[in-house]
Nucleic acid binder design. Structure first.
Lengths: 195, 195
DNA sequence: AGGGTGCTTGACACAATGTAAAGTTGACAC
DNA sequence: GTGTCAACTTTACATTGTGTCAAGCACCCT
């Protein structure tokens, strides 16, 4: 049987997630507590700080949304370009899920080392995906000759940043599908030698 | 003769600028006051809030660094592609100058409407530059046929974001010259139809 | 009945912004 | 010299949000 403690922890994580996604509010500790149906102080019995709560929430979202399974598909692609496309679909399609928590973590970046490290970790994971896609393209002999693998990885990495997604989808009014298609085209134009 | 008041205001703006560029500290109001050689309260006699101080500092930097003259050159370019290159040089070369204040304004974005508007204004100005470059390319008949001018502007705009510059130059270790060259190449690959 | 876990209530420390009020100093007018 | 005005100082306090601390309650288990 799941203990009450586990239930409460789950309720806290879900409440945090909800508050961060429904983006009108700033999700202070007292807001989260209220949404989870406990007192603000009880929150600190489960999570020692706001930063740790946010980090735990990302892990929670990752496991619910099964990020690993999403990325698995891109790893099994045959050609380099197919891998690039699959990776952009997997990560680009994941961004909307984590957009709220991502904004919250980035907002704490300057004031909290723990939050900064959690966010950097996540970004490094994305970078590894970019690296693998670039390597696959290079192994096919399709990488633009003027690009090193490092440079190409850097470029792909910034193209796939959450900030760019925000600007295009939120500020410019692109649909998610348009975003994915245009970024695929852009990445291909940026990295792949024209035959 | 310049009054003492004007002198102090200038000293405050310079101190703010310096603190924001030398990026170890968070530039609180008390830090800025100390750097300007006045009391924290005197700061509020000149600027009613931190947001207004930061906004005034951007205007100060703009006038000292003469952003208008920089952009003038890109407007006088003959071909669309030359205009694209000149604009990327002008804006991309300006980013390092305003990086500190930009980060400070963005950090206040969520909590302060005034700061958010000032930052958005700045970004809209950049967007107009992108729009003009895209239009010039389109008028030359060199815009990729699958791109509308709006879509092309959106893409160029995100490529030239300060966040992307930060990642490439600060995190990935690119030099400013490499950044400008690679972004030119990337923008061209993204927007210009291959002959 | 006793004991422990999970929670509540209430109080407080701390940092940073912003407000308010009274006092100081120096220049300039007359 | 006295008055006055502007710029600045010092001190104090309000506010918001994070995080700490301590006492107590309520339910479940054996």
């Amino acid at each position: 049987m799941s203990s009450n403690q586990t239930d409460t922890k789950a309720r806290i994580l879900d409440a945090t997630w909800n508050l961060l996604e429904s983006r009108d509010k700033s999700a202070r500790m007292s807001d989260i507590a209220k949404a989870a149906g406990i007192s603000r102080q009880a929150l600190y019995l489960h999570f020692p700080s706001r930063a740790e709560l946010l980090v735990a929430t990302t892990r929670h979202i990752d496991s619910v949304k099964d990020i690993d399974a999403r990325l698995e598909r891109s790893r099994s692609a045959t050609s380099g370009i197919a891998r690039l496309h699959a990776f952009i679909e997997a990560w680009g399609g994941y961004i909307p899920e984590i957009h709220g928590i991502s904004a919250a973590l980035r907002a704490m970046r300057d004031s909290d080392r723990e939050a900064a490290e959690a966010w950097d970790d996540r970004m490094q994971a994305v970078r590894h995906g970019c690296e693998a896609a670039v390597r696959a393209i290079a192994e096919d002999g399709h990488l633009k000759p003027e690009l090193t693998e490092k440079t190409a990885t850097d470029l792909l990495w910034i193209l796939l940043s959450v900030e760019n997604w925000e600007r295009l989808v939120r500020d410019c009014g692109w649909s998610q599908a348009t975003y994915e298609q245009r970024i695929k085209d852009l990445a291909e134009a940026a990295l792949v030698a024209r035959s």
